[in-house]
Nucleic acid binder design. Structure first.
Lengths: 224, 224
DNA sequence: AAAAATGTTATGGTTGACCTTATTATTTCA
DNA sequence: TGAAATAATAAGGTCAACCATAACATTTTT
Protein backbone atom coordinates (compact mmCIF):
# COMPACT_ATOMS: atom_id res chain seq x y z
CA UNK A 1 0.00 0.00 0.00
CA UNK A 2 2.86 2.34 0.66
CA UNK A 3 3.93 3.76 -2.65
CA UNK A 4 7.56 3.14 -3.62
CA UNK A 5 8.49 6.78 -3.16
CA UNK A 6 6.91 9.84 -4.54
CA UNK A 7 8.96 12.70 -5.76
CA UNK A 8 8.21 16.16 -4.54
CA UNK A 9 7.07 17.00 -8.01
CA UNK A 10 4.64 14.10 -8.15
CA UNK A 11 3.18 15.20 -4.85
CA UNK A 12 2.69 18.72 -6.10
CA UNK A 13 0.84 17.51 -9.17
CA UNK A 14 -1.42 15.24 -7.16
CA UNK A 15 -2.13 17.98 -4.68
CA UNK A 16 -2.94 20.48 -7.40
CA UNK A 17 -5.28 18.03 -9.10
CA UNK A 18 -7.10 17.34 -5.86
CA UNK A 19 -7.36 21.03 -5.07
CA UNK A 20 -8.68 21.82 -8.52
CA UNK A 21 -11.51 19.37 -8.14
CA UNK A 22 -9.80 16.23 -9.32
CA UNK A 23 -11.80 15.51 -12.47
CA UNK A 24 -11.28 16.73 -16.00
CA UNK A 25 -8.72 19.30 -15.03
CA UNK A 26 -7.21 20.85 -18.11
CA UNK A 27 -3.48 20.69 -18.44
CA UNK A 28 -3.33 24.42 -18.99
CA UNK A 29 -5.06 25.07 -15.68
CA UNK A 30 -2.82 22.63 -13.92
CA UNK A 31 0.27 24.13 -15.48
CA UNK A 32 -0.79 27.57 -14.42
CA UNK A 33 -1.35 26.60 -10.81
CA UNK A 34 1.99 24.85 -10.66
CA UNK A 35 3.85 27.61 -12.44
CA UNK A 36 5.24 25.41 -15.20
CA UNK A 37 4.68 25.47 -18.94
CA UNK A 38 1.87 23.39 -20.40
CA UNK A 39 4.45 21.33 -22.23
CA UNK A 40 6.15 20.40 -18.99
CA UNK A 41 2.85 19.60 -17.34
CA UNK A 42 1.93 17.42 -20.27
CA UNK A 43 5.15 15.50 -20.00
CA UNK A 44 4.70 15.04 -16.29
CA UNK A 45 1.11 13.92 -16.69
CA UNK A 46 2.30 11.26 -19.11
CA UNK A 47 4.69 10.02 -16.42
CA UNK A 48 1.95 10.03 -13.78
CA UNK A 49 -0.28 8.17 -16.23
CA UNK A 50 2.37 5.49 -16.63
CA UNK A 51 2.40 5.10 -12.87
CA UNK A 52 -1.35 4.69 -12.85
CA UNK A 53 -1.99 7.79 -10.80
CA UNK A 54 -3.98 9.77 -13.35
CA UNK A 55 -5.96 9.23 -16.51
CA UNK A 56 -5.52 11.74 -19.26
CA UNK A 57 -8.14 12.07 -21.98
CA UNK A 58 -6.54 14.26 -24.64
CA UNK A 59 -8.47 17.49 -25.11
CA UNK A 60 -10.72 16.53 -22.19
CA UNK A 61 -8.57 16.82 -19.12
CA UNK A 62 -6.85 14.91 -16.37
CA UNK A 63 -8.60 12.86 -13.71
CA UNK A 64 -7.12 11.13 -10.70
CA UNK A 65 -7.43 7.35 -10.66
CA UNK A 66 -8.45 5.63 -7.47
CA UNK A 67 -4.79 5.08 -6.68
CA UNK A 68 -4.09 8.72 -7.44
CA UNK A 69 -6.93 9.88 -5.28
CA UNK A 70 -5.62 7.90 -2.34
CA UNK A 71 -2.13 9.23 -2.81
CA UNK A 72 -3.46 12.77 -3.12
CA UNK A 73 -5.53 12.43 0.05
CA UNK A 74 -2.40 11.38 1.82
CA UNK A 75 -0.53 14.41 0.60
CA UNK A 76 -3.38 16.73 1.56
CA UNK A 77 -3.52 15.17 5.00
CA UNK A 78 0.11 15.95 5.64
CA UNK A 79 -0.15 19.42 4.15
CA UNK A 80 -3.12 20.40 6.25
CA UNK A 81 -1.94 18.86 9.49
CA UNK A 82 1.21 20.94 9.21
CA UNK A 83 -0.91 23.99 8.53
CA UNK A 84 -2.70 23.39 11.80
CA UNK A 85 0.58 22.99 13.65
CA UNK A 86 2.14 26.09 12.16
CA UNK A 87 -0.90 28.20 12.83
CA UNK A 88 -2.07 26.92 16.20
CA UNK A 89 1.19 26.07 17.86
CA UNK A 90 3.90 28.07 16.15
CA UNK A 91 1.66 31.12 15.72
CA UNK A 92 2.77 31.71 12.18
CA UNK A 93 0.90 34.24 10.13
CA UNK A 94 -2.15 32.80 8.38
CA UNK A 95 -1.10 33.85 4.88
CA UNK A 96 2.22 32.05 5.12
CA UNK A 97 1.21 28.69 6.45
CA UNK A 98 0.31 27.12 3.13
CA UNK A 99 3.70 27.64 1.61
CA UNK A 100 5.64 26.70 4.72
CA UNK A 101 3.52 23.60 5.31
CA UNK A 102 4.02 22.62 1.72
CA UNK A 103 7.76 22.22 2.15
CA UNK A 104 7.33 20.23 5.33
CA UNK A 105 4.72 18.01 3.75
CA UNK A 106 7.16 16.58 1.24
CA UNK A 107 9.53 15.63 4.01
CA UNK A 108 7.08 13.85 6.27
CA UNK A 109 7.18 10.11 6.89
CA UNK A 110 3.91 8.25 7.60
CA UNK A 111 5.02 7.71 11.15
CA UNK A 112 5.41 11.42 11.70
CA UNK A 113 2.10 12.17 10.04
CA UNK A 114 0.20 9.95 12.42
CA UNK A 115 2.06 11.13 15.50
CA UNK A 116 1.42 14.71 14.46
CA UNK A 117 -2.28 14.05 13.95
CA UNK A 118 -2.49 12.58 17.43
CA UNK A 119 -0.53 15.48 18.90
CA UNK A 120 -2.93 17.94 17.29
CA UNK A 121 -5.99 16.02 18.47
CA UNK A 122 -6.95 14.69 15.04
CA UNK A 123 -8.27 17.91 13.60
CA UNK A 124 -10.65 17.70 10.66
CA UNK A 125 -10.18 21.11 9.09
CA UNK A 126 -7.15 23.22 8.38
CA UNK A 127 -6.92 26.94 9.10
CA UNK A 128 -7.82 27.65 5.49
CA UNK A 129 -11.09 25.81 6.07
CA UNK A 130 -10.30 22.73 4.01
CA UNK A 131 -11.09 19.26 5.32
CA UNK A 132 -8.27 17.06 6.49
CA UNK A 133 -8.50 13.50 5.14
CA UNK A 134 -8.32 10.78 7.76
CA UNK A 135 -5.57 8.16 7.85
CA UNK A 136 -7.47 6.08 5.29
CA UNK A 137 -7.85 8.92 2.86
CA UNK A 138 -11.53 9.53 3.50
CA UNK A 139 -12.84 13.05 3.86
CA UNK A 140 -15.99 14.99 3.27
CA UNK A 141 -15.53 16.97 0.09
CA UNK A 142 -16.12 20.61 0.63
CA UNK A 143 -19.71 21.75 0.25
CA UNK A 144 -20.41 25.12 -1.21
CA UNK A 145 -19.72 27.08 -4.33
CA UNK A 146 -17.10 29.43 -5.52
CA UNK A 147 -17.46 33.11 -4.70
CA UNK A 148 -16.82 33.68 -8.37
CA UNK A 149 -20.32 32.42 -9.22
CA UNK A 150 -22.15 34.74 -6.85
CA UNK A 151 -24.27 37.56 -8.19
CA UNK A 152 -24.62 41.09 -6.88
CA UNK A 153 -26.77 41.31 -3.78
CA UNK A 154 -25.97 37.89 -2.40
CA UNK A 155 -24.62 37.50 1.08
CA UNK A 156 -22.49 34.47 1.78
CA UNK A 157 -20.25 32.98 4.44
CA UNK A 158 -16.71 31.98 3.57
CA UNK A 159 -16.16 28.30 4.21
CA UNK A 160 -12.69 27.77 2.84
CA UNK A 161 -9.93 29.37 0.90
CA UNK A 162 -8.20 27.21 -1.63
CA UNK A 163 -5.57 29.62 -2.82
CA UNK A 164 -1.97 28.61 -2.43
CA UNK A 165 0.16 31.59 -3.26
CA UNK A 166 1.32 33.52 -0.24
CA UNK A 167 0.78 36.75 -2.09
CA UNK A 168 -2.85 35.97 -2.80
CA UNK A 169 -3.41 34.70 0.73
CA UNK A 170 -1.93 37.91 2.10
CA UNK A 171 -4.36 39.96 0.05
CA UNK A 172 -7.32 37.92 1.24
CA UNK A 173 -6.12 38.15 4.83
CA UNK A 174 -5.84 41.93 4.60
CA UNK A 175 -9.34 42.20 3.24
CA UNK A 176 -10.70 39.90 5.92
CA UNK A 177 -11.76 37.20 3.49
CA UNK A 178 -11.10 34.33 5.87
CA UNK A 179 -13.10 31.25 6.79
CA UNK A 180 -16.14 32.33 8.75
CA UNK A 181 -16.28 35.83 7.27
CA UNK A 182 -19.61 37.10 6.04
CA UNK A 183 -19.37 38.69 2.61
CA UNK A 184 -21.90 40.61 0.56
CA UNK A 185 -21.45 41.00 -3.16
CA UNK A 186 -22.10 44.63 -3.97
CA UNK A 187 -21.28 44.49 -7.62
CA UNK A 188 -20.09 41.95 -10.14
CA UNK A 189 -18.49 43.67 -13.10
CA UNK A 190 -19.02 42.00 -16.46
CA UNK A 191 -16.52 39.88 -18.36
CA UNK A 192 -13.52 39.22 -16.17
CA UNK A 193 -14.25 42.28 -14.14
CA UNK A 194 -13.77 42.26 -10.41
CA UNK A 195 -16.29 41.68 -7.68
CA UNK A 196 -16.89 44.48 -5.25
CA UNK A 197 -17.52 43.07 -1.83
CA UNK A 198 -18.54 44.22 1.57
CA UNK A 199 -16.54 42.51 4.28
CA UNK A 200 -16.65 43.60 7.90
CA UNK A 201 -18.13 46.91 6.89
CA UNK A 202 -15.35 47.63 4.42
CA UNK A 203 -15.38 47.44 0.68
CA UNK A 204 -12.95 45.19 -1.09
CA UNK A 205 -12.29 44.49 -4.75
CA UNK A 206 -11.56 40.95 -5.78
CA UNK A 207 -10.56 39.64 -9.20
CA UNK A 208 -12.35 36.58 -10.45
CA UNK A 209 -9.23 34.45 -10.46
CA UNK A 210 -8.91 35.06 -6.76
CA UNK A 211 -12.64 34.72 -6.11
CA UNK A 212 -12.56 31.33 -7.76
CA UNK A 213 -10.66 29.87 -4.83
CA UNK A 214 -12.90 31.28 -2.15
CA UNK A 215 -15.49 28.66 -1.29
CA UNK A 216 -18.68 30.05 0.17
CA UNK A 217 -22.10 29.01 1.37
CA UNK A 218 -25.22 31.06 1.12
CA UNK A 219 -25.81 32.56 4.49
CA UNK A 220 -28.95 31.13 5.99
CA UNK A 221 -29.52 34.12 8.19
CA UNK A 222 -27.98 32.49 11.20
CA UNK A 223 -28.94 35.14 13.67
CA UNK A 224 -27.55 38.66 13.40
CA UNK B 1 23.31 36.88 5.14
CA UNK B 2 20.69 34.43 4.01
CA UNK B 3 22.35 32.12 1.55
CA UNK B 4 20.82 32.05 -1.92
CA UNK B 5 19.47 28.56 -1.49
CA UNK B 6 21.14 25.43 -0.33
CA UNK B 7 20.37 22.14 -1.92
CA UNK B 8 19.53 19.21 0.27
CA UNK B 9 22.76 17.68 -0.81
CA UNK B 10 24.79 20.70 0.22
CA UNK B 11 23.14 20.63 3.61
CA UNK B 12 23.98 16.98 4.08
CA UNK B 13 27.62 17.59 3.28
CA UNK B 14 27.87 20.53 5.66
CA UNK B 15 26.15 18.59 8.39
CA UNK B 16 28.42 15.60 7.93
CA UNK B 17 31.51 17.79 8.06
CA UNK B 18 30.34 19.48 11.24
CA UNK B 19 29.48 16.16 12.83
CA UNK B 20 32.84 14.69 11.90
CA UNK B 21 34.69 17.45 13.67
CA UNK B 22 34.85 19.97 10.87
CA UNK B 23 38.59 20.11 10.25
CA UNK B 24 40.73 17.97 7.99
CA UNK B 25 38.03 15.46 7.32
CA UNK B 26 39.17 13.02 4.68
CA UNK B 27 37.00 12.67 1.63
CA UNK B 28 36.87 8.93 2.11
CA UNK B 29 35.44 9.34 5.61
CA UNK B 30 32.96 11.88 4.40
CA UNK B 31 31.92 9.69 1.49
CA UNK B 32 31.42 6.77 3.81
CA UNK B 33 29.19 8.68 6.20
CA UNK B 34 27.12 10.03 3.36
CA UNK B 35 26.88 6.72 1.56
CA UNK B 36 28.31 7.98 -1.71
CA UNK B 37 31.47 7.03 -3.56
CA UNK B 38 34.65 8.99 -2.86
CA UNK B 39 34.57 10.19 -6.44
CA UNK B 40 31.15 11.75 -5.97
CA UNK B 41 32.17 13.30 -2.69
CA UNK B 42 35.22 14.74 -4.35
CA UNK B 43 33.15 16.30 -7.08
CA UNK B 44 30.72 17.74 -4.58
CA UNK B 45 33.50 19.12 -2.40
CA UNK B 46 34.87 20.92 -5.42
CA UNK B 47 31.45 22.54 -5.89
CA UNK B 48 31.25 23.50 -2.22
CA UNK B 49 34.76 24.92 -2.50
CA UNK B 50 33.66 27.10 -5.39
CA UNK B 51 30.87 28.43 -3.21
CA UNK B 52 33.36 29.23 -0.49
CA UNK B 53 31.88 26.84 2.02
CA UNK B 54 34.83 24.50 2.43
CA UNK B 55 38.56 24.45 1.85
CA UNK B 56 40.04 21.28 0.47
CA UNK B 57 43.73 20.57 0.84
CA UNK B 58 44.42 17.63 -1.45
CA UNK B 59 45.63 14.59 0.50
CA UNK B 60 45.03 16.50 3.73
CA UNK B 61 41.29 16.80 4.08
CA UNK B 62 38.35 19.13 4.00
CA UNK B 63 37.74 21.97 6.44
CA UNK B 64 34.74 24.22 6.74
CA UNK B 65 35.36 27.90 6.07
CA UNK B 66 33.83 30.48 8.37
CA UNK B 67 30.93 30.81 5.98
CA UNK B 68 30.60 27.03 5.87
CA UNK B 69 30.69 26.78 9.63
CA UNK B 70 27.87 29.27 9.94
CA UNK B 71 25.79 27.48 7.37
CA UNK B 72 26.46 24.17 9.07
CA UNK B 73 25.45 25.52 12.47
CA UNK B 74 22.22 26.61 10.93
CA UNK B 75 21.55 23.18 9.53
CA UNK B 76 22.42 21.52 12.83
CA UNK B 77 20.10 23.89 14.66
CA UNK B 78 17.17 22.89 12.52
CA UNK B 79 18.05 19.22 12.66
CA UNK B 80 18.29 19.15 16.42
CA UNK B 81 15.27 21.30 17.12
CA UNK B 82 13.19 18.86 15.12
CA UNK B 83 14.73 15.99 17.05
CA UNK B 84 13.49 17.60 20.24
CA UNK B 85 10.03 18.07 18.82
CA UNK B 86 9.76 14.53 17.50
CA UNK B 87 10.99 13.02 20.72
CA UNK B 88 9.38 15.24 23.35
CA UNK B 89 6.10 16.09 21.70
CA UNK B 90 5.39 13.43 19.10
CA UNK B 91 6.82 10.65 21.28
CA UNK B 92 8.68 9.08 18.43
CA UNK B 93 11.15 6.33 19.22
CA UNK B 94 14.61 7.63 20.09
CA UNK B 95 16.43 5.64 17.43
CA UNK B 96 14.32 7.03 14.62
CA UNK B 97 14.37 10.72 15.36
CA UNK B 98 17.62 11.50 13.62
CA UNK B 99 16.50 10.23 10.28
CA UNK B 100 13.02 11.69 10.49
CA UNK B 101 14.30 15.06 11.66
CA UNK B 102 16.80 15.05 8.85
CA UNK B 103 14.10 15.10 6.21
CA UNK B 104 12.22 17.87 7.98
CA UNK B 105 15.36 19.89 8.42
CA UNK B 106 15.81 20.38 4.70
CA UNK B 107 12.30 21.71 4.38
CA UNK B 108 12.41 24.26 7.14
CA UNK B 109 12.31 27.99 6.51
CA UNK B 110 14.12 30.34 8.93
CA UNK B 111 10.79 31.61 10.15
CA UNK B 112 9.69 28.13 11.11
CA UNK B 113 13.00 27.38 12.77
CA UNK B 114 12.71 30.33 15.10
CA UNK B 115 9.05 29.75 15.86
CA UNK B 116 9.84 26.12 16.60
CA UNK B 117 12.70 27.06 18.90
CA UNK B 118 10.38 29.38 20.83
CA UNK B 119 7.67 26.71 20.98
CA UNK B 120 10.16 24.23 22.41
CA UNK B 121 11.49 26.71 24.95
CA UNK B 122 14.84 27.27 23.24
CA UNK B 123 16.40 23.95 24.15
CA UNK B 124 20.18 23.70 24.10
CA UNK B 125 20.66 19.99 23.63
CA UNK B 126 18.97 17.42 21.44
CA UNK B 127 17.85 13.99 22.63
CA UNK B 128 21.06 12.53 21.31
CA UNK B 129 22.98 14.81 23.65
CA UNK B 130 24.36 17.17 21.04
CA UNK B 131 24.31 20.92 21.56
CA UNK B 132 21.84 23.02 19.60
CA UNK B 133 23.43 26.12 18.06
CA UNK B 134 21.65 29.36 18.83
CA UNK B 135 20.12 31.58 16.18
CA UNK B 136 23.52 33.16 15.52
CA UNK B 137 25.26 29.86 15.02
CA UNK B 138 27.09 29.85 18.34
CA UNK B 139 27.24 26.72 20.43
CA UNK B 140 29.50 25.08 22.94
CA UNK B 141 31.39 22.34 21.13
CA UNK B 142 30.92 19.04 22.81
CA UNK B 143 33.41 18.27 25.55
CA UNK B 144 34.58 14.75 26.04
CA UNK B 145 36.22 12.00 24.13
CA UNK B 146 35.13 9.13 22.01
CA UNK B 147 34.32 5.85 23.70
CA UNK B 148 36.61 4.31 21.14
CA UNK B 149 39.65 5.70 22.93
CA UNK B 150 38.79 4.27 26.32
CA UNK B 151 40.84 1.48 27.84
CA UNK B 152 39.66 -1.54 29.79
CA UNK B 153 38.70 -0.72 33.34
CA UNK B 154 37.54 2.81 32.72
CA UNK B 155 34.09 3.91 33.70
CA UNK B 156 32.54 6.75 31.79
CA UNK B 157 29.27 8.59 31.34
CA UNK B 158 27.76 8.90 27.89
CA UNK B 159 27.35 12.55 26.96
CA UNK B 160 26.19 12.30 23.38
CA UNK B 161 25.68 9.95 20.51
CA UNK B 162 26.70 11.20 17.14
CA UNK B 163 25.61 8.27 15.03
CA UNK B 164 23.11 8.93 12.31
CA UNK B 165 22.00 5.60 10.94
CA UNK B 166 18.75 4.39 12.40
CA UNK B 167 20.11 0.87 12.49
CA UNK B 168 23.08 1.87 14.60
CA UNK B 169 20.96 4.03 16.86
CA UNK B 170 18.58 1.12 17.38
CA UNK B 171 21.45 -1.08 18.46
CA UNK B 172 22.72 1.52 20.89
CA UNK B 173 19.23 2.06 22.24
CA UNK B 174 18.75 -1.65 22.84
CA UNK B 175 22.02 -1.86 24.71
CA UNK B 176 21.15 1.17 26.79
CA UNK B 177 23.99 3.29 25.43
CA UNK B 178 22.11 6.58 25.65
CA UNK B 179 23.07 10.02 26.94
CA UNK B 180 23.44 9.81 30.71
CA UNK B 181 24.22 6.11 30.79
CA UNK B 182 27.15 4.95 32.87
CA UNK B 183 29.40 2.55 31.01
CA UNK B 184 32.35 0.49 32.14
CA UNK B 185 34.81 -0.88 29.63
CA UNK B 186 35.42 -4.51 30.52
CA UNK B 187 37.65 -5.39 27.64
CA UNK B 188 39.07 -3.72 24.59
CA UNK B 189 40.07 -6.31 22.02
CA UNK B 190 43.14 -5.47 19.93
CA UNK B 191 43.18 -4.19 16.38
CA UNK B 192 39.69 -3.37 15.27
CA UNK B 193 38.28 -5.71 17.86
CA UNK B 194 35.15 -4.82 19.74
CA UNK B 195 34.80 -3.29 23.16
CA UNK B 196 33.03 -5.30 25.79
CA UNK B 197 31.04 -3.01 28.01
CA UNK B 198 28.98 -3.15 31.13
CA UNK B 199 25.85 -1.03 30.83
CA UNK B 200 23.07 -1.14 33.40
CA UNK B 201 24.39 -4.43 34.72
CA UNK B 202 24.36 -6.06 31.29
CA UNK B 203 27.23 -6.82 29.00
CA UNK B 204 27.26 -5.38 25.54
CA UNK B 205 29.68 -5.71 22.64
CA UNK B 206 30.40 -2.67 20.56
CA UNK B 207 32.47 -2.39 17.40
CA UNK B 208 34.91 0.47 17.23
CA UNK B 209 33.17 2.14 14.34
CA UNK B 210 30.10 2.45 16.52
CA UNK B 211 32.07 3.38 19.62
CA UNK B 212 33.64 6.21 17.70
CA UNK B 213 30.39 8.12 17.69
CA UNK B 214 29.67 7.72 21.38
CA UNK B 215 31.01 10.76 23.19
CA UNK B 216 31.82 10.16 26.83
CA UNK B 217 33.26 11.85 29.89
CA UNK B 218 35.23 10.19 32.59
CA UNK B 219 32.85 9.64 35.45
CA UNK B 220 33.86 11.77 38.40
CA UNK B 221 32.19 9.47 40.87
CA UNK B 222 29.12 11.60 41.07
CA UNK B 223 27.27 10.14 43.98
CA UNK B 224 26.24 6.68 45.16
C1' DA C 1 63.54 3.07 -2.39
C1' DA C 2 60.06 0.29 -4.10
C1' DA C 3 55.53 -1.55 -3.40
C1' DA C 4 51.06 -1.00 -1.52
C1' DA C 5 47.54 1.80 -0.10
C1' DT C 6 45.10 5.78 -0.42
C1' DG C 7 43.56 9.90 -2.61
C1' DT C 8 42.54 12.68 -6.90
C1' DT C 9 41.19 13.69 -11.53
C1' DA C 10 39.39 12.61 -16.10
C1' DT C 11 35.90 10.80 -18.92
C1' DG C 12 31.59 9.43 -19.98
C1' DG C 13 26.94 7.92 -18.46
C1' DT C 14 22.21 8.24 -16.01
C1' DT C 15 17.99 10.30 -14.13
C1' DG C 16 14.15 13.56 -13.18
C1' DA C 17 12.15 17.63 -14.00
C1' DC C 18 12.21 21.26 -16.14
C1' DC C 19 12.89 24.52 -20.56
C1' DT C 20 12.18 26.42 -25.74
C1' DT C 21 10.72 26.16 -30.35
C1' DA C 22 8.34 24.09 -33.80
C1' DT C 23 4.54 21.16 -35.76
C1' DT C 24 0.27 18.82 -35.72
C1' DA C 25 -4.37 17.78 -33.96
C1' DT C 26 -8.84 19.04 -32.20
C1' DT C 27 -12.41 22.06 -30.69
C1' DT C 28 -14.92 26.15 -30.72
C1' DC C 29 -16.91 29.99 -32.73
C1' DA C 30 -18.12 33.41 -36.16
C1' DT D 1 -17.71 25.36 -42.81
C1' DG D 2 -13.53 27.49 -42.35
C1' DA D 3 -10.63 30.30 -39.35
C1' DA D 4 -9.05 31.08 -34.82
C1' DA D 5 -8.04 29.39 -30.54
C1' DT D 6 -6.57 25.88 -27.78
C1' DA D 7 -4.28 21.47 -26.84
C1' DA D 8 -0.94 17.90 -27.73
C1' DT D 9 3.36 16.06 -29.39
C1' DA D 10 8.05 16.02 -31.16
C1' DA D 11 12.83 17.23 -30.89
C1' DG D 12 16.56 18.90 -28.67
C1' DG D 13 18.67 21.32 -24.57
C1' DT D 14 19.93 22.32 -19.45
C1' DC D 15 21.12 21.33 -14.71
C1' DA D 16 22.30 19.05 -10.25
C1' DA D 17 23.76 15.13 -8.25
C1' DC D 18 24.85 11.07 -8.55
C1' DC D 19 27.32 6.62 -10.78
C1' DA D 20 31.45 3.51 -12.78
C1' DT D 21 35.89 2.81 -14.68
C1' DA D 22 40.42 4.02 -15.37
C1' DA D 23 44.56 6.74 -15.06
C1' DC D 24 47.52 9.36 -12.30
C1' DA D 25 49.57 11.43 -7.87
C1' DT D 26 50.96 11.18 -3.22
C1' DT D 27 51.67 8.93 1.23
C1' DT D 28 52.62 5.25 4.00
C1' DT D 29 54.58 0.98 4.91
C1' DT D 30 57.76 -2.59 4.30
Amino acid sequence: MSLPHMSESTEMYLKALAELGDRDVSIARLAERLGVTPVSANEMIRRLGEQGLVAHMPYKGVTLTEKGREAAANVLRRQRLWEVFLYEHLKIEWAKIYELACSLEHATAPEVTEALAAFLGNPTVCPRGNPIPDANGAFAPLEGRSLREMAAGETVTVRAVNATSTEVLKYLQEKGILPGARVTVIEAAPLDGPLTLLVNGREAALGLSMAEFVIVEKTVNEGR
